[in-house]
Computed example of a mutant assay.
Amino acid sequence: MRSDQALIERTPTISFNALRRSRTTIEDFVQTYFPYHNMQIPQDFFKYLDLVLFVEATIYQADETNELYAKQGLLLSQAHSETMKTLQAVLEDRGLWSRRFADELSKGEEYWRLERAICAAMLRHPRCSADSTPESARHLSIDQIHKASLAKSFDYRVLNLLLYGLTGRPVDEQLMAFLAVDEHLVDIGDDLVDYEDDVMANSFNIYRGYVHLHGSHAQLAMIDRIAELEAQHAALLAQLPHETRQKFRRRHAEASEAPGSGNWTFPQPILDEASYRQQFADSASQ
């Protein structure tokens, strides 16, 4: 091993918290995506454990740094650039780095940039009441919200490309297109569950963006968006080979057994986020 490569591979880039946070994503990814590659669980998971874990935990480490900047309403951050350079160097040395891989990671960089910009606008120009026109609407657009939300699950696509590289199989573009919509719908469901927490943390959340732009009508606007995506999802699923559709349906049935899965539940819109956060601050100080 070259001395410079040996040094790179010994560069610490991941905190325990990033490892901890990546666990749930890796579990879901392995159970959902390994069957599409005809990979066996747990044999192939342990075979590629080091790379799958390293890639996802490195992304979470960069995401943690970005969340700290977003929480403070800061726009610029280069704090995770060295972390991502180490990731690239490790994959390049193993012949797993490609232009397509780099493009998907760049979508992650774009998501982090959008998250900082959107969260800064929400923090500095909050919606103050149900009746007023939100100041943040002058600094945000629905296209911006959608673009960030679509890019949010880039790590699943990065991990999926990693599996194609590890198995030496060509990328199935038809399957990737379907999974991108599926991932987006899953992210929306997660954002609905995490809405109040994301308001407190000043984190990006598509429903939070809808509330800023649509106020008390956010739920109806969100329902229209979900219906549009579900129609795309059904059309793309119908185009997949029968065996692939069966793999998706089996995994979907397993995931739907969890409490609350498969239902769209919309939290009450928080129209005055500053007051909402202050209430929790006041309660904590008592």
Score class of each variant (00 low, 15 high):
Asp155His: 13
Tyr156Glu: 04
Arg157Tyr: 11
Val158Leu: 11
Leu159Ala: 01
Leu159Gly: 00
Leu159His: 00
Leu159Gln: 04
Asn160Glu: 13
Leu161Tyr: 04
Leu161Gly: 00
Leu162Asp: 01
Leu162Ile: 04
Leu162Arg: 02
Leu163Phe: 03
Leu163Val: 04
Leu163Gln: 02
Leu163Arg: 02
Leu163Asp: 01
Tyr164Ala: 09
Leu166Gly: 06
Thr167Glu: 07
Thr167Phe: 03
Gly168Glu: 04
Arg169Lys: 14
Arg169Gln: 13
Arg169Ala: 06
Pro170Leu: 08
Pro170Ile: 10
Pro170Gly: 12
Asp172Asn: 15
Glu173Ala: 11
Glu173Trp: 10
Glu173Leu: 11
Leu175Tyr: 09
Leu175Asp: 03
Phe178Ile: 08
Phe178Thr: 04
Leu179Gln: 06
Leu179Lys: 08
Leu179Ser: 01
Ala180Gly: 02
Ala180Phe: 11
Val181Gln: 05
Asp182Leu: 06
Glu183Phe: 15
Glu183Ile: 05
Glu183Thr: 02
His184Thr: 15
His184Asp: 14
Leu185Met: 12
Asp187Lys: 11
Asp187Trp: 15
Ile188Asn: 05
Asp190Pro: 00
Leu192Thr: 06
Leu192Glu: 09
Leu192Asn: 07
Val193Asp: 14
Val193Gln: 12
Tyr195Ser: 02
Tyr195Gln: 01
Tyr195Phe: 14
Glu196Cys: 09
Asp198Thr: 08
Val199Cys: 15
Val199Gln: 01
Val199Ser: 02
Met200Ser: 07
Ala201Met: 13
Ala201Arg: 15
Ala201Gly: 08
Asn202Ala: 11
Asn202Arg: 09
Ser203Ala: 11
Phe204His: 05
Phe204Met: 07
Asn205Cys: 12
Ile206Pro: 00
Ile206Val: 14
Ile206Arg: 02
Tyr207Asn: 07
Tyr210Ile: 07
Tyr210Ser: 03
